[in-house]
């Protein structure tokens, strides 16, 4: 294969089996929410970024997001991949493929993935990224609008995807990423998660008792959870006069309380606006918890200050961006 440099025809992968829900995602479609487009994008941004760093890509390169059951993929070229997020017991032939490492693959290799043993969403980053067209500035699939993601739909068996050039020269597993990798992995070991939230913007719609209920009880992740939202089940939250509001914008991680008093955590495929009051908002560094929790897992909400949340955010961005730069400088 290496002899044939005449075209990049061979820079492709073939989807042999689709898994449960495998889609192309990047940071999402930013700047179009005012027109009603969901932002889309990966749910677990941290996992996407670690993967890209490991294979030497820019942080923002698109990856495959695989939900609960991973895909089977045939490589038409020598390249490098990294698997992050949920552990789906990946193999190439008989060889077990660990998560959070840069893995060289050869043309003809077939990657198989199974059911997530831990976590919910696995990410596959590939050197050079996935060469699919940008639609409204993003490669992310928006399933409702049938745009992005290469095919305008989740990937299916038989789909072919072009990948970029495998440029970076060395394989490295950056030491500095260990903190991210460890925290990413440990999240998936737990069944009870503490989730930090900033109260509001509409917490006053709920009674004092209702707010107490929200902060002092565990809520369980239900089956009715997807890329749009994580629906929770627990002690109903009491409102003063119902939780309906005049429809307004919905941030990532916003916790709506439906009329039945149950919280709903809004994620990447959320609608841009909605009419349920929002009790609180999950801080950005804790969003990966909802990307990886599984039906039956439990969460406890803990209110924090905006100052504290932004400190966590800035620290994390600094580490990831520094590591991204290092990889690129090579």
């Amino acid at each position: 294969m290496k002899a044939c440099m005449c075209s990049n025809m061979e820079n492709k992968i073939k989807i042999r089996s689709a898994g449960a829900l495998t889609t192309i995602q990047d940071y999402g479609r930013l700047g179009y929410q005012s027109q009603g487009f969901s932002p889309s994008g990966v749910v677990d941004q941290e996992a996407m970024e670690i993967g890209n760093i490991l294979v030497g890509n820019p942080l923002e390169e698109a990856v495959l997001e695989c939900t609960l059951i991973g895909p089977g993929i045939e490589f038409m070229t020598d390249t490098r991949i990294a698997l992050t997020g949920a552990d789906m017991q990946a193999k190439i032939g008989d060889r077990q493929i660990p998560t959070c490492q840069c893995i060289p693959v050869a043309a003809g290799d077939v990657l198989t993935m199974g059911v997530a043993a831990k976590g919910c969403r696995a990410y596959i980053a590939i050197a050079g990224g996935f060469q699919v067209p940008l639609v409204l500035g993003s490669k992310s699939l928006n399933q409702k609008c049938k745009i992005g993601g290469g095919y305008g739909r989740p990937l299916q068996a038989g789909d072919m995807l072009s990948t970029g050039e495998n440029t970076a020269s060395t394989i490295r597993n950056p030491e500095a990423l260990q903190q991210e990798v460890q925290s990413s992995k440990s999240k998936m070991e737990e069944k009870l998660h503490t989730v930090h939230v900033i109260m509001g913007p509409q917490e006053t719609l709920f009674t004092k008792e209702g707010r107490k209920t929200f902060l002092h009880n565990t809520y369980e992740i239900t089956n009715d959870s997807n890329r749009m939202a994580c629906k929770l089940q627990g002690k109903p939250i009491e409102s003063v006069h119902g939780s309906d509001i005049i429809s307004d914008g919905i941030a990532m991680g916003a916790i709506q309380v439906a009329s039945n008093g149950q919280p709903i955590v809004m994620l990447s495929d959320r609608q841009t606006t909605g009419g349920y009051g929002k009790m609180a908002t999950v801080i950005s560094t804790d969003i990966p918890i909802f990307a990886q929790c599984r039906p039956g897992d439990q969460v406890v909400f803990q209110a924090v200050s905006l100052r504290w949340a932004q400190k966590q955010y800035r620290k994390k961005r600094k580490r990831i961006q520094a590591e991204g730069r290092n990889t690129h400088g090579l």
Partner: peptide, 22 residues
């Protein structure tokens, strides 16, 4: 400031806290 979402009676403004403080 990354994007804004105008609605009936409110405006949601997305920003990057690494670039501009609250």
């Amino acid at each position: 400031v990354q994007e804004t979402v105008p609605t009936f009676r409110s405006l949601l403004i997305y920003y990057d806290a690494c670039v501009i403080s609250y």
